[in-house]
């Protein structure tokens, strides 16, 4: 029943590899401006925003740089900066 391995798949991060490589603009977080409204967490399509001890952590390994977090932030605490 080798076929079962091809038919069935298990959850894993990074099924498309480290999608951080897709990024043209990088979200830079400013803790001082952050009002902890969680909008970035709620709307990040990639689920790579985490809020740990009242600080936003962005997983740059996977962040595709779409810029939604920056757009939805009411406090302008996330700025999109061009990658080098």
């Amino acid at each position: 029943m080798e076929w079962l391995k091809t038919l069935i798949s298990r959850p894993s991060k990074g099924v498309s590899g480290k999608t951080g490589y897709w990024r043209t603009f990088k979200p830079i977080y400013d803790r001082d401006k952050c009002v902890l409204c969680y909008e970035c967490y709620v709307y990040c399509p990639e689920n790579c925003v985490e809020i740990v001890e009242k600080v936003v952590k962005i997983d740059y390994d996977f962040c595709k740089g779409c810029g939604i977090c920056s757009e939805v932030c009411p406090a302008n605490a996330i700025e999109m900066v061009k990658e080098d």
Binding site: M1, E2, W3, L4, K5, T6, L7, I8, S9, R10, P11
Partner: peptide, 26 residues
């Protein structure tokens, strides 16, 4: 295999060509 809410797996998502052909041979 049996789909079960307590066993997290997907049935039938995109797979490798060669592996799919192997599946047909089996």
């Amino acid at each position: 295999y049996r789909v079960d809410p307590n066993d997290v797996f997907a049935v039938g998502n995109i797979a490798d060509n060669l592996e799919t052909m192997r599946m047909r041979r089996e």
